[in-house]
Design a protein around this nucleic acid. Structure first.
Length: 118
DNA sequence: TAGGTGACGCGGT
DNA sequence: CACCGCGCCACCT
């Protein structure tokens, strides 16, 4: 299975104005223990730049990858531009802006991976 | 092959 | 709350 190709499809499902953790992405990709790999893929640009990397934060809501953007505050600016509040600690409240995917979304993605042999 | 490094996460304190 | 220790795993020396 191609984890990075899966990541691309999963990331496209993250809604505008929402944020999600590395762990959630890994889970949807079928490898719940690979949260670190999600960060690795993003920092090394292994999944293309057309995915909403700005919406991926750690489980505490912190913008842990901000330093990898054009400028250190770029991620915060992009998120705020779509209505996501970021506090002075570079953190978003996932209870308010977190993306809680449905079982339907998870199954739909699984079917797609299966169908496309990913 | 062995050891080090993280855009990580969880549980304990 | 915060901080810390530890498990985790793909990659890179």
């Amino acid at each position: 299975m191609d984890f990075y190709r899966r990541m691309e499809l999963v990331c496209r499902e993250i809604p505008y104005g929402k944020a999600v953790s590395y762990g959630q992405i890994a889970l949807l990709c079928g490898k719940p223990k690979n949260a670190r790999q999600v960060g690795y893929a993003l920092s090394h640009r292994l999944v293309g730049d057309h995915i909403p990397a700005r919406r991926i934060v750690n489980s505490a809501g912190k913008l842990s990858g901000a330093k990898s953007f054009e400028t250190p505050d770029r991620q915060r600016e992009l998120l705020e531009a779509e209505g996501v509040e970021v506090d002075e600690e570079e953190r978003v409240d996932l209870r308010l802006f977190g993306w809680y995917h449905t079982l339907e979304v998870a199954e739909e993605l699984r079917r797609r991976f299966e169908a496309e042999g990913i």
